[in-house]
Design a protein around this nucleic acid. Structure first.
Length: 975
RNA sequence: GGGCGGAUAGCUCAGCUGGAAGAGCGUCGGCCUUACAAGCCGAGGGUCGCAGGUUCAAGUCCUGUUCCGCCCACCA
């Protein structure tokens, strides 16, 4: 309570229906201006920290982000109300390759210039401008969704502070020998012209061929050895043919040479244990160590020469002789095949579909490419990451099975290639001495190229991202040039939980908020990001995990099971869902049969709460696929050339209806009736509906609290929906209304008001993490009454109000059972009203008679205090008890075990229709009884099953039989 | 090829440690009942993918199998 009082709350909105546009921005601004999102390290308080999985500045947020951030916000808001000092730290990722590619593409489309035309400095200026624009758009999208991030701590991976952390990390790992430079076969993106790590590849199925090539023996050209390949053009770089040592067919050929066609080189036939599989193809394979990962390993085993035949742009180089300059896959392949055919060296050609690696950003083919790159040695880091999870149990996955995915990746990760031949990113903090290495040249951008494999690295003296080494430690020369490459984006993102809190400085934030509480993310970056953050935390934070929990949520898919994205044409902008409006969609594929790829879509105003409710509801059960159905209906007579569609999303529809229902219930019933508190005696209310709703709220508080603690947020949305709609609105409000309207003494108005306030308060609180806006707005309207009743502090905010406790709500199981029976009775009466012809639908029924067998008397008695409730719910004027033996004549009957219900309907009843209705019920009951009888006549069941189960089944059968006999008697009476 | 997940009402999905099949939407019928027609009342609709097994009892556990999806993998 040390916080200064809040600024005046936003003006109350008086609207008949809920209009999110009148609420959301005003309340968000109010929270923000009161710094309610901003935590401070506070000794004695429990911290709760979430680092946002930093979105890329490449584009706008999509529905997947809406889900991810709704989860984070729901957890954050819940913990904040539970008294934690909550930090949700926002920020963005510079996303090196992705962002540079986007800006380059745009430059080319708009101005026909390349990055080389602009030069490094100007290009970076353009990318910074892009970043500024998109970062602010992304952050405003987050605000729009209601994200309670601490904007004062907003970070960016290339800020000076984070750049310092990156440099510190690089230099420490380098000094330790965990970062090294070396020539390796790496993945090369031909489109972006940079190295990629294994994790940046996408595999796509490609239709191609399997070609058989005949290589003639040097000593006897009439004899050939046949190899099969999917990449005939790489034969220009072959340096051997390999066979399995056990392969009898080729035993005599090992050690001889073949004459490589087209290249006219002699290459050896070698025996290798690993590469060739005698069962496959001809059993003999061509070996191209510079252009295939397996061949590379084989080449190293046998000391084969490695002939690089590629340029960085994917064309063939001079090692390819007359094919130089041709694009390898698109042009050279066909020419090589053609020429081999002409020479009679081509064997059979079979169609083949196989998966080929593509660049995850440019979509172009990835070539294995031999080059000098920087690497992180992974083995010791992998050990730390395993220890954290397996031995220390410092980190827990939700759901637990995700821990297996994590381990699987750790077990199969090679050294990490971290250098990228692009400009946007953290420059590698290594210099080279031009005096020691006179063959280093500077290209037009001022970048040194090439850097020899044996160039001696010179490191700067400090972590300052601006620091440069003064002189060459060997020759003292001052002509130093920095390595032109930048680091893989993930090198900086892996530091996110550390660097955002100020590491390597020992800041108050770092001391208080580290380790973070939970990392919430989708599965696709488990390896790329999650595992590496753990490594860095373990390495640089004294073996402490960066996060205690990892929540892996599913991916939103469309109804067909495809990943949703705007570029595919089946996704949409979350802000459009919130604000409504229209959007031109120009996708790659049809979102559903008959829906064109290029169209205009119109969205309703759903509001942020409905969006959040909808996406959070999808997450129930930790499912990995979250299919979301979308209805698109064509608009008649739409203007313009493009077809127009109205878009409806059922899950958002549900959220919108819920927000509106809340609005209506509070505006229409709760608020008008709590303005003037009538006096009420202390202690428990004598009115059963009061005790009932508090009991129901109490059990919901217990369940929701438990669910939230396990991140079962989808389950909570469902639970709260029914608590509010069914229990609070359909039952409690209906039943309590007369007391609110009535005079004080008789009706217990004061008690009704207090109970209403307590239930409302708890419901709004529990719904707040899911639907922050409508709940805060209604709670503010309710606050004066809550304060008057001593249930809340005046001038406070729901956002920071304390979470309800289940122990403050008395539970009453017997009352809940009695009320459930009352609801069944009301429902049975309504059913008769609806099904029996002749019963007036609108008017109240004059009388209902309830009867019970002797063993049901207790239940009947317990129902006594609830007659008023039944009267309201089923609209009957009078309820009385009757003798079971002499039911009223000319009546419709129903059963709500253990009670019999009679509606005297003299003169109104349609006899044949009523007879048919009764017969239908009897048939249904008889069918159920048959099953029970069979079960109970089975001695194995009666003896084997626990006694209470057998008893239960017996009771059920007796109930059924009684109901049947009653209905049959009724049938007989109707004649 | 390896790993994982899914298959339950027309659609999207709940269903925890095995004890009479649920929600929302959609459909059908009836209601402008004084918070709410963005609503209320009622009805219909399911051999829980298929085949075995364990058990007195299986949507739930085990085995096999078929589809769908995802992740990983060098399939020459």
């Amino acid at each position: 309570m040390t916080k200064p009082s809040l600024t005046p709350r936003p003006e109350p909105v008086d609207a008949k229906q809920y209009d999110p546009s009148l609420i959301e921005e005003a309340y968000y601004r109010w929270w923000d201006e009161n710094k309610l999102f901003h935590p401070e390290p506070t000794p004695g308080k429990e911290p709760h920290t979430i680092m946002i999985p930093l979105p890329n500045v490449t584009g706008m947020l999509h529905l997947g982000h809406a889900l991810n951030n709704s989860l984070q916000d729901a957890v954050t808001r819940c913990r904040r109300m539970q008294g934690c000092e909550t930090l949700w730290l926002p920020g963005t990722d510079h996303a090196g390759i992705a962002t540079q590619s986007v800006v380059e593409r745009r430059l080319w489309e708009e101005k026909r210039v390349t990055r080389y035309d602009l030069g490094r400095e100007e290009m970076l200026r353009r990318i910074w401008a892009w970043k500024d624009e998109y970062q602010s758009r992304i952050l405003s999208q987050l605000r729009r969704m209601g994200a309670s991030c601490d904007w004062d701590r907003t970070e960016f991976t290339m800020s000076p502070r984070l750049s310092r952390a990156v440099r510190r990390t690089f230099l420490e790992l380098f000094r330790e020998g965990l970062i090294y430079r070396g020539q390796r076969l790496i993945n090369w993106s031909v489109g972006v012209q940079t190295a990629l790590s294994n994790d940046e590849l996408e595999h796509h199925e490609v239709d191609t061929f399997f070609w058989d090539l005949h290589y003639p023996l040097t000593e006897d050209p009439s004899r050939v050895i046949t190899v099969s390949t999917t990449r005939p053009e790489t034969m220009l770089g072959d340096t051997a043919v390999a066979v399995h040592p056990s392969d009898e067919r080729y035993k005599d050929l090992v050690g001889k040479t073949v004459r490589l066609p087209l290249a006219d080189r002699d290459i050896p036939i070698i025996a290798d244990e690993i590469l060739p599989d005698p069962e496959k193809g001809t059993g003999a394979v061509k070996v191209t160590p510079a252009h295939d990962f397996n061949d590379y390993e084989c080449g190293k085993r046998h000391g084969l020469p490695m002939i690089n035949i590629l340029n960085t742009d994917g064309t063939l180089n001079s090692n390819a002789g007359r094919y130089a300059g041709l694009k390898a896959v698109e042009e050279a392949r066909a020419r090589v095949v053609e020429d081999l055919k002409a020479e009679g060296r081509l064997g059979k050609v079979e169609p083949l579909r196989h998966s080929v690696a593509h660049c995850y950003r440019s979509g172009t083919i990835v070539e294995p490419y031999l080059s000098d790159q920087w690497f992180v040695k992974m083995d010791s880091l992998v050990e730390l990451a395993k220890k954290c999870y397996l031995e220390d149990r410092q980190v827990t996955f939700f759901p637990p099975r995700r821990g297996d995915d994590y381990l699987r990746w750790l077990d199969s990760t090679p050294d990490w290639c971290i250098s990228r031949q692009i400009w946007w990113g953290h420059r590698i903090p290594i210099w080279y001495c031009l005096d020691c290495h006179p063959n280093i040249e500077l290209d037009p951008s001022g970048d040194p190229r090439p850097i020899p494999s044996d160039a001696r690295p010179v490191v700067p003296g400090s972590d300052d991202p601006e620091a440069t080494p003064e002189a060459c430690p060997v020759c003292g020369g001052k002509r130093l040039v920095q390595d032109p490459d930048v680091l893989d984006t993930w090198f900086s993102s892996q530091l996110w939980p550390l660097s955002t809190l100020g590491w390597p400085d020992e800041t108050e934030d770092l001391k208080f908020f580290y380790p973070t509480s939970v990392l919430i993310t989708a599965r696709d970056i488990l390896a790329l990001w999650v595992a590496r953050m753990i490594m860095m935390g373990m390495k640089f934070r004294g073996g402490v995990t960066p996060f205690r929990h990892v929540l892996i949520h599913g991916t939103i898919l469309d109804e067909m099971g495809n990943i949703m994205s705007k570029s595919r044409g089946n996704g949409f902008d979350p802000v459009k869902v919130i604000e409504g409006g229209s959007d031109e969609i120009k996708g790659k594929s049809e979102p559903a049969p008959g829906i064109p790829t290029h169209r205009v879509e119109h969205y309703k105003v759903y509001g942020a709460d409905a969006l959040r409710y909808g996406v959070l509801g999808l997450t129930a059960g930790f499912n990995q696929n979250l299919k979301m159905s979308v209805r698109r209906t064509p608009r008649e007579g739409s203007e313009g050339a493009l077809p127009h569609f109205d878009v409806e999303v059922p899950v958002f529809e549900e959220g919108r209806r819920l927000s509106n229902k809340m609005w209506q219930a509070f505006r229409g019933v709760v608020l008008p009736n709590v303005q003037d508190l009538s006096p009420a005696p202390e202690g428990e209310s004598p009115f059963p509906e009061d005790r009932w709703i508090l009991s129901r709220v109490g059990s919901a508080v217990a369940e929701v609290t438990a669910n939230m603690a396990e991140y079962r947020i989808g389950e909570s949305t469902d639970r709260l929906y029914h608590l509010f709609w069914d229990d609070f609105c359909s039952y409690y409000l209906e039943v309590v209304k007369p007391r609110l309207w009535g005079t004080e003494e008789e009706s217990g108005r004061g008690q009704a008001q207090r109970c209403l306030l307590r239930a409302s308060d708890a419901i709004l609180k529990m719904l707040h993490p899911i639907m922050p806006f409508v709940t805060e707005a209604l709670w503010q309207d309710l606050l004066p009454a809550l304060a008057a009743a001593g249930l809340a502090a005046p001038g406070s905010a729901l956002m920071t109000a304390p979470w309800p406790e289940s122990k403050s709500f008395a539970r009453d199981a017997a009352l809940e059972a009695a009320t459930a029976l009352a609801q069944q009775v009301a429902s049975a009466i309504n059913s008769i009203r609806s099904e029996v012809p002749g019963v007036p639908p609108g008017q109240a029924l004059p009388e209902v008679v309830l009867c019970a067998e002797p063993e049901g008397m207790e239940a009947l008695v317990s129902l006594g205090p609830l007659y008023g409730a039944i009267s309201r719910l089923a609209k009957v004027s009078k309820i009385r008890e009757g003798e079971i033996g002499s039911p009223p004549s000319q009546s419709a009957a129903a059963v709500a075990s253990p009670l019999r219900i009679f509606l005297p309907l003299a003169g109104l009843i349609d006899l044949p229709a009523e007879r048919a209705r009764l017969q239908k019920k009897i048939d249904k009951l008889a069918k159920a009884s048959e099953g029970l009888e069979r079960k109970l006549s089975n001695p194995a069941f009666v003896e084997g099953a626990p006694a209470d189960i057998v008893e239960k089944e017996r009771g059920r059968l007796a109930e059924n039989r009684q109901a049947i006999s009653l209905l049959e008697a009724q049938l007989a009476r109707l004649g």
